[in-house]
Nucleic acid binder design. Structure first.
Lengths: 144, 144
DNA sequence: GTCTATGCAAAAGGTTTGCATGGAG
DNA sequence: CTCCATGCAAACCTTTTGCATAGAC
């Protein structure tokens, strides 16, 4: 996605930060791939796979933080110890079905669910801004 | 709650593990308090507050693991880096309203929500076993 | 007495940071 | 030319583990 690249560059300009090669390489690595979720460590490996001058772990983490601030990524932790990152460009909030067998994550969106949640929040006089719903279980493939 | 203490002791017996003073001190500290959620580090501080012979961090973690295995606690991670533990005695599944201002956690249960989730899982041919729903926002108190 | 639990300190594992240097603007 | 970004290594922080000793059964 060149869309993401553009958003990121705009963000850097707005913040008077520099558009550097390592930063671009990282956004490209993330958004030219179709996977929605990944771990910092996987990204490090992927982005450096075909490079002579390796990008350091520190830079990967620093760039992930920028991507999060710019709204391009969302950082999450599913019960595990490591953070995973999710692309946020394909916006429109959604929730997750997480397979405990193979670890696959399926996204879904349900308007009904959103409405129910808003109703619950209202009932508790809670001003909700966001939510995370993870349904754990076994996906179709693993169920066979 | 003496209920929890009893369940824990039974569990230890069943596992041929020892009922030691530090273990009892930890269950008591957790279940004589009304809070449902806490961090390992807070627990360490609380349990040692009035003790001459301090319980070590290692023992606290080891005991928390036992309490989790025995079903008395549930371990969770809300986006932060540290685990928090939730008492599981007051059973019956429930979800959380989490205030991003003061960090307070309010529990709720909605049958309608449960049904909707089951419907979604079915639609995706996903065998759900469990789920976690966290609604983030601002609680009534902090909203003022 | 035996064998598990404890404390201590060190190890782990993911993430962050300080500092000197390299490179964008 | 001026600062910000990078790499490296060390620091961090929570949690886990190895080992010698203390204590439950």
């Amino acid at each position: 996605m060149d869309e993401a690249r553009k958003v990121f560059i705009d963000y850097l300009h707005r913040q008077r930060m520099k558009v550097t090669e390592p930063r671009l390489a990282i956004v490209n690595a993330i958004f030219s791939r179709q996977k929605f979720h990944f771990l910092a460590d996987d990204l490090l490996r992927i982005v450096n796979a075909r490079r002579r001058e390796k990008i350091s772990r520190a830079t990967v983490y620093r760039t992930l933080a920028l991507l999060e601030e710019s709204g391009l990524l969302r950082r999450e932790r599913y019960g595990g110890e490591v953070s995973s990152y999710e692309k946020a460009l394909h916006e429109g909030h959604h929730d997750h079905l997480i397979c405990t067998e193979c670890g696959s994550v399926t996204e879904f969106y349900s308007d009904e669910l959103e409405k129910t949640q808003r109703r619950i929040a209202r009932r508790h006089r809670f001003k909700s801004t966001d939510h995370v719903l993870q349904i754990f279980g076994v996906c179709e493939k693993c169920a066979k």
